[in-house]
Amino acid sequence: MKVLNIILNGKAVTAKMGQTILELAREHDVFIPTLCDSPALEAAAMCRLCTVQVIEGKWPKYVTACNFPLRRDAEVVTDSPDVRHGRKLIIELLMARCPTSPELQRLAVDYGCDLERFTPLNDDCVICGLCTRACEAVTGRTLSLAGRGVAIHVDTAFQKASTFCIGCGACVQICPVQKIKMEDVDGERRIILHGKIASRVKLPQCTSCGKYFGPVIDLKQVMERMGEHLIPPPNATVCPECSRRNLAIKLGKRYFEQYGVFEEEGQANAG
């Protein structure tokens, strides 16, 4: 494969054909801030925080590092004053939307942001699209970016609690400003978005210990995806903890039958 000669912040390095600037920068320990990037998902280039300058021909141009594929020898500047200034504005603008995010607060200090410039918008989301893309990667049935322009927001269909959600919690895990919450109460899992319940998923009760655990549909989804590769099939009536314990007991019993040194107390604990 063709090797590209790249000047990364003044240093000569090589890159693979089609490699993104972000990948290259990470290889060389050059930090580029990101907000909407996840190694598990295709780049969306929505937050624009990773914008850098690239000179492939005569003129420098602004591109997003997360999805710009290097195809020619080029010079990349990841931290020029212009780039830093643009990032500073992005952070200031997003802080006005979502002032309580620790991630953004840290970046605001790094970039010397003036947080008084923009009047706060009462919102709790930076529209990075990670949750909707994560949802799409799992089932694509619950969250989407509804509305357009200034009205764009993460939502469920008809703003109602989704009946298609499997409660996998990917959206909760991936939210960079930690604004999507998940709670397991009263035998159901709730995903809470913009302070409203976005989905309720029933949790099965463990027949062994009585605890509620992993959502029902989640297991179905796993079985569907794994198909015949799933060995052994998950036992949907027993929680993972009990399942592990039962397996341990089973193995212990076999050991006892073979070597005759099994402690009886272990069995007494099994419910």
Binding site: A45, L94, V126, R148
Partner: peptide, 11 residues
């Protein structure tokens, strides 16, 4: 009329 997906244009 902006699609609203990217920060600089929207904000």
């Amino acid at each position: 009329e902006s699609c609203g997906q990217c920060t600089p244009c929207r904000e």
